[in-house]
Each structure stands twice: as C-alpha cells, then as structure tokens.
Design a binder for these strands. Structure first.
Lengths: 159, 159
DNA sequence: GCCTCGGTACTCGGATAAATCTTGTCCGAGTTGAAAAGG
DNA sequence: CCTTTTCAACTCGGACAAGATTTATCCGAGTACCGAGGC
C-alpha cells in the first residue's frame, strides 16, 4: 500500500503556491525546477489538483497555476483526494457471500470487517482534514523562517 | 492507493481460524474453498501471516494453519502489517533538499509535510491496533450468530 | 499618437509508452500417517 | 497381537509468469503578449 509519489509533490507545490500568493500564476516548469522534478509528470498532478478545484489554471504566457482558495480553506485531505482519488484504500469485495461460506439470508448485515477497516480510514481522513495548508505554512515559518523568503525570491526571479 | 486484496482474505481467514479454534489446523485448500478463492495465492498470504507470527503452520497430512495467539491478542493492525508490510504508505523522499529550493543549512529540521502525513497514518494505525479479532468475533456473534456455527460445521466436515 | 491586426512564444491538457508492483500459478522439499510385513 | 518398516499422500514454501497500476514522456489546442502597420 504505497501512496503515490505525486502526493508529496502536490503538497510541496501547494505550499510553494501559497508562498507566492494568488496574484501571480506559477507555471509547471518553475514548480518542477524548484525541486528538480520531471515537469511533464508534475503537470499531470497539477491537472488533478485543478480538476478537484484546489488550484486554478490559466493558459498562455504569464499563465500557470494559482491556489483557488485561501490556504486556510485547503486541507491536506483535499490535496490527497485530488491525487489519489476519492475511493477508500480498503475495498470490500464481499467474499463472505461467495462459496460455502455464503449466508443465504436475504437481509445481509453489513460486512463487519469492512466496517472495522472503514473506521480506521475515517480516522486517517479526519486527521488529514484537520490540517490546512495555512497551518503547515505557520509551522514552517516557525521552524525555518528563511524558507518562505527564499521561495518567494526564487519564484519571483524565475519567469 | 489501493490496499492489497489479500488483506481482506487474510482478515476473513483469521476470523475463520478463530471459529475453528487453535486445536485443529486448517489447510489452505479448505480456507480457500470456503470463499472460492485461488488457493495458491491465499497460501501466499497465509505464509506472510506465518512469518509475522500471527499463525502457526504445520506441514504434512493433518497440517495447515492455526492462530498463534488468542484472538484477544491479535489486532487488525497485526494482520494488515503482516500482509502490507511495516513501512508507511507516505514515504518522504525529501524533495525539499533538491534543486534551488534546497536549504543549505546543515541541521535540517524534520520535513513538516512528512510529519503531517505521518500523524494521519498514526491515527489510522491506532484505530486498527485498537480492534482485535476477538472483538470482531463478538460483533459477528451478535449480528449473525449462525455464521460461526455454520463455519465450524463446514470446516469440521472438510478434511 | 492611438488603434487594429497579425504573429509568435508560451501555457495547459490529454493521449501515448516504459517501469514497477500486485495478482496469479506452478512444482519441489519435508512431514505425517497409515498400511503392510515380520516377530 | 504387537512392533517395525516402508510407502504414499498431503502440506507448506519459495521460485516463476501475467495483468494492472503507477511513473514518465510527448505533442497538439488554445491563449496572451508584443510588435508592426495603418488611421
């Protein structure tokens, strides 16, 4: 159960977009160069963020990506769901209803294994939903105040 | 981020081993036939459970798998870790230390994105670790008391 | 000097291959149990 | 009838392919900016 690497890229890119601010659009090439990532593939992740409504995309010269909302309104869950999709990691295939183990009763109760796994995923999602990009920004500012300054300067200097 | 299907199989199989009890060893073929699963592949999952110490395996005629501990001592996390591995789903590759975005400071603070994601996974793991096979058994007994009876009967009749 | 028009460069967006992981299958090593032979 | 020996069947265990998902790449459609030409 390895999470897609694009999630890490998307989170860091959202953070960078937050540093730059919503006024200026940052093209994929700049976001990719900042961490030496493959630009074409990062673009794919940013497209997913755009489809999910996390970022706006504007084509043409001077175009690129901007945060669609304030960092306070973007949770980590928003980003993860945008990249990984909405469906749960554990998917109950109802094996209990196949073979000799099947219970022929018509009103089948919900699969308790599924319920237990789902409870764990809900806890995971809740923890992700409780953290916003803005809170991440605040934590970074406190731990390493020079990071946002450097990022803003670099992106301002990169056309 | 789809979880391996083997997790579902392993959980249901552990439940069935719990119904049968630790006295009798159940071979892979019986566990697979109960849900019409591919026996050879289910065997692979059971091997993983054996390596993790969740079940005992005994070869030869009359052999098979038994729970290695009481159902109260087996958590859902034990089973999931046995199948999926111990490493986290989100793996920080430290992209922040590559390219122009790298902070040249020697004492690098921990990656806050990684910390945030890890917090969510810890919540997930905690929820899984809080539920045991025995509790699942109790829930099934209450929701559908005939299920354990049917299972015991079927496995007793299957050599 | 101001407006209009055309071109060019730049951006995203989706369609298209390579790599890696999951899923599925197979056969061999080892062990047990039973049956058969001997005492 | 009891003991010993041999055999055969059954079990797990790891090595070996097929399919699916992730990763990576490319080129085309569309847009905004910039310059040139005309009014």
């Amino acid at each position: 159960m390895r999470m897609a690497e694009g999630v890490e890229w998307a989170l860091h890119s959202c953070l960078n977009l937050a540093w730059v601010g919503p006024e200026r659009a940052v093209p994929t090439a700049a976001l990719a160069a900042f961490y030496e990532l493959p630009a074409a593939y990062l673009n794919k992740q940013l497209q997913a963020l755009a489809r999910a409504g996390v970022v706006y995309s504007t084509p043409g010269p001077g175009g690129g990506f901007r945060l669609a909302r304030d960092p306070e309104q973007i949770t980590l869950l928003d980003v993860v769901v945008a990249i990984e999709g909405r469906e749960d990691a554990f998917q109950c295939t109802e094996i209990r209803q196949r073979g000799p183990g099947a219970t022929p009763d018509a009103p089948t109760a919900p699969c308790l294994v599924d319920q237990a796994m789902r409870r764990a995923e809900i806890a995971w999602r809740a923890e992700l939903a409780s953290q916003t990009i803005a809170e991440l920004q605040a934590a970074v500012r406190q731990a390493a105040p020079e990071v946002p300054v450097r990022a803003r300067q670099w992106f301002a200097a990169t056309p």
